[in-house]
């Protein structure tokens, strides 16, 4: 098998490029970051619920989904919102990312179970 680190890195290239090409930017417009986090969590939810090869999980799960979604941008944008006086939006952003991502994981599991 190829070195796991290389597999994860290759998935990371695809994830980072896909996130960038979808138009995600680091600023106080948080809808783009929410979108990649929810979408990536759904895909990872599917991947961990179906029997796939370990190398597939490394490339597309740890690599692609891990890199496509982002915590640092989410944290930075939330802190910026809070400090710019938009405290309700900041709290809402924190809650909606969490609820959205957890629901997406659940939906991914449900879709995988339904299709299996």
């Amino acid at each position: 098998m190829v070195d796991p680190t290389l597999l994860v890195g290759a998935g990371g290239v695809l994830g980072a490029l896909a996130r960038h090409l979808l138009g995600e930017r680091i600023d106080t417009r948080t809808a783009d970051t929410l979108a990649v986090n929810v979408l990536g969590s759904f895909v990872l939810g599917v991947l961990v619920s179906v029997p796939v090869d370990e190398s597939v999980l490394l490339v597309f799960g740890t690599g692609f989904c891990g890199a496509f979604t982002t915590f640092s941008t989410f944290a930075f944008e939330t802190v910026r919102l809070y400090e710019s006086g938009e405290r309700r939006r900041a709290v809402f952003n924190g809650v909606v990312n969490l609820v959205g991502a957890l629901a997406a994981v659940g939906l991914g599991w449900f879709v995988a179970a339904t299709l299996a």
Partner: peptide, 15 residues
């Protein structure tokens, strides 16, 4: 956009 956004992850955290 490249390194830090890929280094950190929300999907793995959620799963």
């Amino acid at each position: 956009t490249g390194f830090l956004s890929s280094f950190t992850t929300y999907s793995t955290f959620a799963v």
